[in-house]
Structures are given as C-alpha cells and as structure tokens.
Design a protein around this nucleic acid. Sequence first.
DNA 1: CAGTCGATTCACT
DNA 2: GTGAATCGACTGA
Length: 213
Amino acid sequence: MIVPRDRMPLPRTFFDRPVLEVAPDLLGRILVRQTPDGPLSLRLTEVEAYDGPNDPGSHAYRGRTPRNDVMFGPPGHVYVYFTYGMWHCMNLVCGPEGTASAVLLRAGELVEGAELARKRRLSARNDKELAKGPARLATALDVDRALDGTDACAAGETPLRILTGTAVPAEQVRSGPRTGVSGDGGVHPWRYWIADDPTVSPYRAHVPRRRSS
DNA sequence: CAGTCGATTCACT
DNA sequence: GTGAATCGACTGA
C-alpha cells in the first residue's frame, strides 16, 4: 500500500530542534485524532511557542511539577493542561529532553471528521469556528488530560499523531505577540499563523481577572 | 490551608 | 465591550 507523501508521520527529529524553529514549521501539518467514532484530521493554522524554564509565560517557568512533567520529557509528545475550570489545551513538546519547550496548538482547519467535531462544538456557528482557539481545538478533537504524554510520533495505532501535511512557505507565515499570556510573555512575537487563513483566532491581550465579591 | 488566578470561551449589552 | 463560569495548581503563611 502506498502512503501519500503528505500522510507520512513527522519524525521525532522534527521536534528535536529549537522551539522557535519548530513552531512556524508546524503550520500546514496534519494532526490526526483517532476516536471510537472515527478519525479527525486537523490542518494546523496557528501555533504559539513557549521557550522553556526561562520563559515567564511558560508553564515550565517555575520548574517541574506533576502537571507540566511531560514538557520536560522527550520531544514529539503531547502536553495537555486543564484551565479556567473547564477547558483543555494541547501542546507538542520540542527540543532535546529536559528543554521543557513546547508549541501550543491554537487553531486549525478540519480536513476530515468535521461532522464528528460539530457534535462536540455545538456553539460553533460554522466550520471555521470548530477549532478557532486552543480550547476549541482540544474540544473539537476530544483531547483531555487522559492524552497527556501521548507520543505523537509513535508507530502503529495511537490516539494522536502528527503527519507531514504540506509545509507553509515562509512568505505566508505571519508572527506576532502571544495571546492571553501574562508576565512579560507578550513582548515576544512567538505566535505564528498562516496569512489570511479564516480559521486563525482573533488576538486578545492578556487581562488579569478582577476579583469577585 | 485559604487565597488567587489562569496559554479561554460564551452569552449578553 | 463586559462579566460569568468553574476547578485545580500553585503560593505563601
């Protein structure tokens, strides 16, 4: 059986590079999620880099904990976190083991299994919104903490896998400040997206939450 | 052990 | 544009 070029798995060496190199290179790649109801495939259109323990915006900033343990592990694995009491977001770990860098997957286009994603994303008004935003992306793909630590480069049957897809030419890649990041994380243009892509999420600056009475 | 707040989203004005 | 929802991780005493 012949495997199309764009359906080849991304090798682990792809992720074993500096995160600022990997992040823009992830645009246009295909994330495949296997569920009991069938597969979903997502073409990545927006990502964000988190550069290890020295990055104040990173979950790794205050050292290794049970939550962020996977970030400190080998590249090509999935780091999933739970936030705001109701959402999950997913990352791909980059750099050599111990680097604790990762790329947050912020948005994408469903190229397969959109009908499955719609069942989990009832508030989406159209298919462009199915995975427009990191928590929406995780919801659409049915990703939660149970998948934390999954190897996205493993051979054989895996719940999550990343494929080659089609790399986006450098002239179509845009970058800017990260969305919703506290600390001085907003000073770095470490958010990357595909120019003019309708599935990219809107930019929002970080706003500290006001205390409730 | 209580207080704070988050790599967000949604409903509503 | 504003505020609520909701809970677990982390902080500091």
